[in-house]
C-alpha cells in the first residue's frame, strides 16, 4: 500500500471495525459504557494507524483464502512444535551439536505484509532466525548450516510457508 496516498473513508471504517472487534474480545462485556469507550478508543487508534493497517484486507476473507489460512496455521503450528523439540534436543545433548552461520535467499513475495509473515514464520521454525530483510533478500541465521546456496536455502527454509503465502497474496 502506498502510505503517502490519503486513505479512503471505507478504509477508515474497516480499520475502526476490526479494532472495535478486538476491544470486544478483550472486554467481553455488553454494557453501554464499555462499547462507547471502545468506539472512542477504536476511532482514535484507527485514525492514527490506518496508513499502516494492511494486514486484513477484506479480499483475504474470500472462502478459498480462508482455507489456505487454516492450512497455513497448521503448517506453522507443526513447525513451531518441531522447532521446540529441535531446541530441546540441541540444548540437552552434552556436546551441543551446532554449526551456525548466516545465509541468504531471495523471496518471490511482493506484498509487504506477506513478507513480514514469512519472516516471522522463519524465525519460529526449526533452527532459523531472520536477521534482516533488505528488499527481497532475507538474511537468515541458521543454527545448523546445511547449505549456503541461496536457491537451496530457499527450498529448505522458506518453501513450506511461501508455497501457501504465494497462493494467498500472489507473486
Amino acid at each position: 500500500m502506498n502510505t503517502s496516498r490519503k486513505p479512503s473513508v471505507s478504509r477508515y471504517l474497516y480499520t475502526f471495525l476490526i479494532i472495535w472487534l478486538l476491544w470486544y474480545g478483550f472486554t467481553t462485556s455488553l454494557q453501554p459504557a464499555e462499547w462507547i469507550t471502545g468506539a472512542v478508543v477504536a476511532a482514535l487508534i484507527s485514525f492514527v494507524t490506518v496508513r499502516y493497517f494492511e494486514c486484513c484486507d477484506p479480499i483475504l476473507f474470500a472462502p478459498k483464502h480462508i482455507v489456505w489460512f487454516v492450512a497455513y496455521f497448521f503448517v506453522f503450528l507443526l513447525a513451531l512444535v518441531k522447532a521446540n523439540f529441535d531446541v530441546a534436543r540441541r540444548v540437552l545433548s552434552p556436546q551441543l551439536p551446532i554449526n551456525p552461520g548466516v545465509v541468504k535467499f531471495k523471496t518471490r513475495l511482493k506484498n509487504r505484509f506477506a513478507r513480514m509473515v514469512l519472516a516471522n514464520s522463519i524465525t519460529l521454525t526449526p533452527g532459523t532466525l531472520t536477521v534482516d530483510v533488505v528488499d527481497d533478500t532475507y538474511y537468515i541465521h541458521w543454527i545448523d548450516v546445511k547449505t549456503t546456496e541461496p536457491d537451496a536455502v530457499y527450498r529448505e527454509v522458506a518453501w513450506p510457508f511461501e508455497r501457501i503465502l504465494l497462493k494467498i497474496y500472489g507473486e
Binding site: N84, V87, G127
Partner: peptide
C-alpha cells in the same frame, strides 16, 4: 555460545 544462538533458543521456546 553467542547472542544469535541464544536468541534462537530463547525465541522459539518462549513463544511456544
Amino acid at each position: 555460545p553467542d547472542l544469535y544462538n541464544r536468541l534462537q533458543a530463547g525465541t522459539k521456546a518462549s513463544t511456544l
